[in-house]
Every structure is written in structure tokens, then in C-alpha cells.
Design a protein around this nucleic acid. Structure first.
Lengths: 159, 159
DNA sequence: GTTTCAAATGCTACAATGTTGCATCAAAAC
DNA sequence: GTTTTGATGCAACATTGTAGCATTTGAAAC
């Protein structure tokens, strides 16, 4: 039997809270970039795109390379510290995995492109699958217009 | 109040069945490319990526430009004949919208990248949203390993 | 059957997002 | 302080999707 399709070889729920502790607990080197990325994700109100993380690093005065940022995010996902969301468009978005690890749904505004966490809406449906299929996780993404765009009649983006 | 976030200004469920009828019913010109794209989607066992549609056209002996194909698919989505799925990765996948228009969930194999329709699993959850939000549709995507990959232990792709 | 004309197409060029390879740097172990 | 190797920075490239514009063509009008 093959390995399960879990992205995280290490346990995801650590007592550690600070960025440095999180990194060290997973056997990684504590670098400026990683610390800043984690802090950016932790303090963000919604899942961030790679580009938004980059802006956050720049704002924090942390010089960084585009590729390094991709690799830092990839490492975080690999270790189960963060997770990717394919809400829409071509760009991934990233968010920190909280302790309880309750997967929630996301809302994608088709007008402004922003993504919000719907903490109250679970995303854990586990329906019966055809024989031989292994279920790892489920992602529920709701689409529509957010409150801001709904009010202001912002131009519609491709669905 | 702004226009609703629906992608389809025209009714989606036509009695028409052939590609030409579908196109004409939406006021479009019946071209080789559009007909071939619709037929490719109709006969596909799963949602096709832009690239897979391109291969199907080539196999059918239909010369086509990359951009034309993008525009043909965009037109189909615009008219509600087809719909886009953001299963994972950066590439959209496309499928024909059947008459009944029951939205179903999809399964994305994280190993081979293939996407399957789960016709029996509905994707129509309509939870309560924060005030001011307008819900258009919901997309449920399950992730894991398909039967083929599960059996053969194919190398894991990025989650 | 011709003519007409906007809708489609096919270029070319470009933008956005992500990856690979490799030389260099630095975190942490000694 | 040295050493080791994980992490970074750079350049080059791959994939996916868009924009502008000249040309072709579907189909409606004649």
C-alpha cells in the first residue's frame, strides 16, 4: 500500500506559538525570511497570495528573492505549518494551520478577487468515493461578491 | 443593487443537443473550432484542461491557435454552455453544463493531477454568509489519490 | 450566387505565476 | 573559530493566460 496522500510528514499541532519555535520544531533553520513569512501569515486577516506575502516582507524591511519566497512557502506547506488554497485564478493563497486543525471553507469574491476564511463553515465532507480512491482532504470554496464589492458594484471578474 | 454574479446572461438548459444547435441557440457563429471544442468536452469522461482540449482538436484534425482556443472556451463559459473548475494547479478545467444543471463535486488526484466528476456528490452548499455577501455558487473539490495512483504508488505531486 | 460586414480567428507580443540549476552565504553544530 | 549543509540569490526557463490588431469567414442581405 502506498503512502497516504497527506502533505505533512510531521505532526501539525505543536504547542509552539512563535515563528521561530514553529520552524525549529520542524527541524528547519530559523531564517529572517521564514520568520517574517510566518508572522505575515499569522497576522493576516485572510489567506495571502505569494505576492501579498512579498509585499508584507518588503513592508517589514526584509529583503527577499521571489524564488526564496516560493521555497519558504513550499517548505511551510510541506511541514504542515501552512496550507495552500486554490480559491480561483492561477495563484495559490496561503494560510497558517491553526492548532485545532478544523478545516474551514473559503469565500472568493469574483469581483475583487479577495479570499476570506469562513471559520464557521466546515470543509470536511467525506462522501463515499469509488473503490480504490483515497481521500485526503476536501476544499469548499464559495463564490460570489463580498460586502464591499456588492455595495459598490465593482466590475465583474472572470468567473 | 448591482447585477448578480451569475456568469450566464442566457438560459443554460436548452433542448438543443448538438454542438451546432447549442452555439446557434446562444447567438454565436458556428465555427469548426467551437463545434470541435464542444464535442471534445461532451465526449470527455472528465473535465478537460485547455491543453487537453487542444490535443483533442489536433487529434480531430482541426487546426487551431492557442489564443482562439482560450477565447472559444471563454465564450462557452460566458454563455453558460460550459463551466470552469479550479480544481488545483494553475490551469482551469472545463466541462459541459448538462441540462439539469445539478452542480457536483470533483475529485482531484494529487498524484497524477487528473480531475474526476463526482456526479453523486452535490456541490450546492449555501451556508449563511456575513451581511452584505452575495453567494453565486459553491465548489467542492476533494483531494487524494485516485484508484490508479493508489494502486501503483505514483510519486506525490505538490498538494 | 454575390456582396457585405461584424464576429471569429491567427498572429505577435506581453504579463503573471511558478520552477530549475548552480554558485554563494550563513545557521547551528562542533 | 571552523565546519557543514540547509537556505538563499541570481539567471534562465516553463506554463498559463491576455491584449492589440490585421485578416478571414459565417451567415444575413441582396
Amino acid at each position: 500500500m502506498p503512502a497516504p496522500a497527506s502533505p505533512s510528514p510531521a505532526p501539525a499541532d505543536f504547542p509552539a506559538t512563535t515563528a521561530s519555535e514553529l520552524i525549529a520544531a520542524h527541524g528547519g533553520r530559523v531564517t529572517r525570511t521564514r520568520v517574517a513569512v510566518i508572522e505575515a501569515l499569522q497576522s493576516a486577516a485572510h489567506p495571502l497570495s505569494h505576492d501579498e506575502v512579498g509585499v508584507a516582507l518588503t513592508d517589514a524591511g526584509i529583503a527577499h528573492d521571489r524564488v526564496t519566497l516560493y521555497r519558504a512557502l513550499e517548505w511551510l506547506v510541506d511541514k504542515g505549518i501552512a496550507q495552500r488554497i486554490a480559491a480561483s485564478e492561477r495563484a495559490w493563497r496561503f494560510e497558517i494551520r491553526r492548532g485545532g486543525e478544523h478545516r474551514h471553507a473559503h469565500f472568493h469574491c469574483d469581483r475583487c478577487g479577495q479570499v476570506l476564511c469562513l471559520e464557521d463553515v466546515p470543509s470536511d465532507s467525506r462522501p463515499a468515493l469509488p473503490a480504490g480512491f483515497e481521500l485526503d482532504r476536501s476544499e469548499l470554496v464559495l463564490h460570489g461578491a463580498c460586502a464591499d464589492c456588492g455595495r459598490r458594484g465593482v466590475k465583474m471578474e472572470a468567473p
